[in-house]
Amino acid sequence: MPQPTPPVASAQTRDKLYLQLARLFRNKITTGEWGVGQSIPTVEELEDLHKVSRTTVRMAVHALVDEGLLETRKRGGTRVMGQPYKPPSFLLPTSWKELVAFGEQIQQTTLRTIKDSVPPIPSGFPLPGEMAPAYVHLLRVHTHGEDRFCLSELYLEQTLYAQIHPQLQHATLAQALGSHPSRIATARQHLSVAPADELIAQHLSVQLGTPLMQALRWACNPQGLIIYWAKVRFISEYVHMEMDLLK
């Protein structure tokens, strides 16, 4: 008889759990809940607290040992050795002006450009305007120093792309469009949390399913034509939001 396969699925589930647990432990160190020099709870205590197996707890702890954040001592428990690297956190743009300023703080690389494309507007999402016959699709990765933290899937109305293409060699789409404000009559942004897919895993080197901050952005010209559509996904640690609650 063929051997059953559940142990493989069980191992995959355990792997996902240990990665989730490692993120949780890393956050405890980042926030100071587990202070540098302090001992963390025992494996048995963590096993009972999080309702996972001892193997899963040990895998999560060893992951942080490998990162240099924890040290396990014989008969001495495990203590915190250092803080994780904290990346710079950028203010997530909430206006076109902030979007232009954001583009001045980061570097970008265009990975591919495809003509005669159509924006993949999500099913059930209200169509914000009239679709143009064709768009140019740009896939761009954004970096700060050596760190890749953002992937943009951008769509620009094709005839407009031909007009501003020279500017795009050194500017973001928002900067290029903003240089002629009369082109834009309306512009909006929709924020949500979305899991990392294969494209993100490939270009931002994060695990599949990692929660990301996602911004859907669009702009219409005075005739109601959608001239710009973007799906922008950020590694969450690199962005934050601020809003005036009295506005």
Rank of each mutant, 00 (worst) to 15 (best):
Q202D: 13
Q20G: 09
T55A: 15
Q214F: 09
G209N: 07
S152Q: 09
S179D: 15
E198K: 08
D66Y: 03
W96T: 01
V100T: 04
E237D: 14
E242Q: 11
H62N: 10
A22C: 00
K16M: 07
L177F: 12
V80S: 06
R14D: 15
I227A: 00
Y18A: 14
L154P: 00
G77W: 15
P87G: 05
I121T: 04
D116I: 07
Q214T: 05
Y161G: 00
R58M: 13
P2G: 02
H50N: 09
W34G: 03
E71F: 07
P126C: 07
A171I: 08
R23H: 10
Y85N: 10
Q38V: 12
T143R: 11
L151A: 02
E242G: 01
L154Q: 08
V52Q: 07
G32C: 06
G82R: 08
I40C: 09
V136I: 13
M1C: 03
L69A: 02
P119K: 06
D244K: 03
S123M: 14
L216G: 00
V141T: 02
L246S: 12
Q105N: 01
A230W: 12
Q38E: 10
R58K: 10
I226T: 06
E45R: 10
P4D: 11
A219H: 01
P84W: 15
E98R: 05
V80Q: 05
H240G: 06
A162F: 11
P211M: 05
Q169M: 09
M243D: 01
G224A: 04
G82I: 03
G209P: 11
H142G: 02
L17W: 14
F234D: 04
Q158E: 15
V43A: 14
N221C: 06
V206S: 09
A174T: 00
Q207P: 03
R233A: 08
F102P: 00
G76C: 13
L92T: 02
V239N: 03
L245I: 04
T110V: 13
C220E: 06
L154D: 13
I106K: 11
V206M: 09
R217M: 01
T78S: 05
D197F: 14
L177S: 09
I121Y: 13
P2W: 03
Y155N: 05
L173F: 10
P84T: 08
N27H: 15
A22L: 08
T113S: 05
T72E: 14
Q105D: 02
A230Y: 12
H50R: 06
P88A: 06
I164D: 07
G35W: 03
A185D: 13
V193A: 14
Q169W: 08
G37L: 14
A171L: 15
L138R: 10
K74I: 13
E237F: 03
K231Y: 12
P128T: 03
L17T: 07
G32L: 05
E44S: 14
A174E: 08
C150H: 06
P119G: 04
A9W: 11
I235L: 15
P6A: 05
R73I: 10
Q202I: 04
L204G: 04
L156K: 06
E130W: 06
D48G: 05
A174W: 00
E44V: 13
P122M: 13
A162I: 01
F125V: 03
T5F: 12
L91G: 01
K16R: 09
K97W: 00
Y161S: 01
A132K: 12
V43P: 00
G124Q: 10
F90L: 05
T72G: 02
P122A: 09
